[in-house]
């Protein structure tokens, strides 16, 4: 029984991963790609690790999966934030149909 529930949760997570990677392909510029990919892949991996915990229970493997989930939840948005800042400082323009760019206004002042 636990096996079935766990594999369903892992399947949902893997599907989220797939949508994140499709977003990486379809979005028009770096920032939109970063948004789609970071959100979907982070939640997808969290679902996969929760599924692992459901299957194996609270033995050492399950506890390590939970710790890994906490690490990913902390590090992934930090990395995305650093990448967005680095991309903007290295001079990558926003998509041509973008509405506004307050950050560039500040830098040119």
């Amino acid at each position: 029984m636990n096996n079935i529930i766990g594999y369903i949760i892992i399947g949902i997570g893997v599907l989220f991963n797939l949508f994140g990677c499709i977003g990486l392909l379809r979005m028009p510029d770096v920032y939109c790609r970063l948004q789609a990919a970071t959100k979907c892949v982070t939640l997808g991996i969290c679902f996969v690790l929760i599924g692992v915990v459901v299957i194996v229970g609270f033995n050492p493997l399950g506890v390590k999966a939970l710790i890994c989930m906490v690490f990913i939840l902390v590090t992934s948005p930090t990395g995305a934030h650093a990448l967005a800042r680095g991309a903007h400082k290295s001079g990558v323009k926003l998509w041509k149909k973008s509405v506004c760019d307050k950050y560039k206004d500040k830098e040119s002042k």
């Binding site: 989220f16 994140g20 379809r26 959100k39 979907c40 926003l94 998509w95």
Partner: peptide, 26 residues
């Protein structure tokens, strides 16, 4: 909010017209 965010992004990625309207705000 995390799950809501993912459903939102999933809708935008799979929509054929790509309904996005990006920009940087303060």
């Amino acid at each position: 909010y995390l799950i809501l965010a993912n459903l939102d992004v999933m809708y935008r990625v799979l929509h054929p017209d790509l309904p996005i309207n990006p920009g940087i705000v303060k």
